[in-house]
Amino acid sequence: MVNSLSHLGVGLLIALTLGFKGKKRNALGFLAILPDLDFVPYVIFALLGGSVSHETRNQLFYLFGHREFMHSILFILLVTLFIWFKTKDRLFTAAGFAAIFSHVYLDYATSWKMRPLYPLSTGTSTLGAIYFFDPLANILPLLPVFVLLAAYMKGRGKWNGKFNNFCAFVTKNRSKLYPALLIVLVVWLAVLPVTKLFLVNYISSAEGAKISYEDTYPSSIGKFLAAYSYNSTHYRIMEVSYWSGIEKSDYIEKINVTGEVPNDSAYIEKAGKLYSTAVPQEIDYPVYSVSEGNGSVTVTLSDARDQYVKYWAYFKTVYRFVFDKESGEYVAYASEQEGREKKLEENWFRRIS
């Protein structure tokens, strides 16, 4: 997940490398941020999501959700075909493909799970190889944005006398500078997933356990949060890095029951089944906390890694199911990124017996 301005910069960098100017250059910049315009259809989903069936709600989420269909391979191909039929320009079509692909790849390579194969598959996946505050991925693409901004401001009679030497250097060396920057960025983004693979394999060997590549989450520059099921009752959580291997580790209970809760396993199973029917399925290592009070049983579901991540993470969502002991009915709540808890609509989950 790279910021939108850096996505724009990648599109402009592609355009400047290939010599596009004016409207075509701007179009490539737009294509590089196009997938993030899925917030527009997401508004439609937010308006309609509560008034349809559970199955329809899930399909609407796949189509209109953030980082869903508009971050898929099919969407990239459809946009590329549209560009070709509209322009019949092979180079511009290839550049358009590269611009929109760069956005999807950057999001996929950083820290958020997506469904790139939708509608062939609704399974989520991610490379998770690049920290979303990675300086190279975020800062390098800002250079063409700044160059064009400076040119625009100078053209309007502003910034006169400012950045003259810098702009002159860029103008003089642009035929080599932009391709060099693009090559550096591409190599960086291609190498990091491979280096992560070596790290995960090393940790797996050291632990004598299979560590999931995609569930090993980039927690900071060069560092990851890894986990695996240690035994039937605990997960092992590890902070690992390229330079130190396993730096810290801890064990997290899979189930925590407060007091004596009759049939606690049945409530846990029901909460798990309900969650399995919902989207977006962000929890990889489920942890259940069970308590009883006021004629109800509360089951809280979260990810074992939740407390080890300071900033945004796709799995930082906590679900709370409150089951009425007599009727068996439930009310569900959720909080995201340690935000305010909200009550979930009835069609969020499929009815189970």
Score class of each variant (00 low, 15 high):
125 S>W: 09
277 T>G: 08
112 W>F: 12
37 L>G: 09
325 K>L: 14
153 M>E: 15
39 F>S: 09
185 L>Y: 13
283 I>Q: 02
34 L>N: 07
107 D>G: 03
36 D>K: 05
136 L>V: 15
251 Y>V: 07
331 V>Q: 13
145 V>G: 03
171 T>K: 15
12 L>T: 11
168 A>R: 15
101 F>W: 05
150 A>P: 10
169 F>Q: 07
164 N>W: 04
100 I>H: 04
51 S>V: 15
84 W>F: 15
144 P>H: 11
29 G>P: 10
39 F>W: 13
343 K>D: 09
45 F>D: 04
298 T>Q: 11
42 Y>V: 03
10 V>F: 06
181 L>D: 04
317 T>G: 00
337 Q>Y: 11
195 T>A: 07
201 N>H: 13
171 T>Y: 12
146 F>H: 02
95 A>T: 00
242 Y>G: 01
33 I>D: 06
170 V>T: 08
151 A>D: 15
289 S>D: 05
167 C>P: 00
11 G>A: 06
180 A>S: 15
61 F>R: 01
17 T>K: 06
144 P>K: 06
172 K>R: 13
257 V>A: 11
248 K>C: 02
352 I>K: 10
281 Q>V: 01
195 T>F: 13
43 V>R: 08
257 V>C: 13
298 T>D: 10
126 T>V: 15
78 L>T: 07
166 F>R: 10
288 Y>N: 03
30 F>R: 03
123 G>W: 05
182 L>I: 08
224 F>G: 05
313 A>N: 10
172 K>L: 12
54 H>W: 14
292 E>Y: 10
104 V>G: 01
333 Y>E: 01
86 K>P: 02
104 V>Y: 01
57 R>Y: 07
333 Y>F: 11
176 K>W: 14
250 D>K: 03
56 T>V: 10
335 S>Y: 04
297 V>E: 03
324 D>P: 13
47 L>S: 05
281 Q>T: 02
64 F>D: 02
328 G>Q: 11
201 N>A: 12
17 T>N: 04
136 L>E: 11
109 A>N: 05
53 S>V: 06
240 V>I: 15
19 G>A: 01
214 E>V: 08
48 L>T: 14
109 A>F: 04
201 N>I: 02
346 E>L: 08
262 P>R: 09
306 D>R: 00
337 Q>L: 10
53 S>H: 12
121 S>D: 13
96 G>I: 05
308 Y>S: 08
345 E>R: 14
71 H>V: 08
94 A>S: 06
315 F>N: 00
133 F>N: 14
88 K>W: 05
175 S>V: 15
350 R>Q: 14
98 A>C: 10
39 F>C: 05
40 V>H: 10
209 A>G: 02
110 T>Q: 02
260 E>F: 12
208 G>E: 03
208 G>S: 03
198 F>R: 11
311 Y>N: 14
304 A>R: 07
149 L>I: 14
353 S>K: 14
267 Y>L: 12
153 M>Y: 15
53 S>K: 05
1 M>H: 11
73 I>M: 07
183 I>F: 12
101 F>P: 01
22 G>I: 14
7 H>W: 09
62 Y>H: 13
305 R>F: 01
305 R>Y: 00
193 P>Q: 07
311 Y>C: 00
295 G>K: 04
186 V>Y: 00
199 L>C: 02
179 P>M: 10
51 S>F: 12
281 Q>K: 11
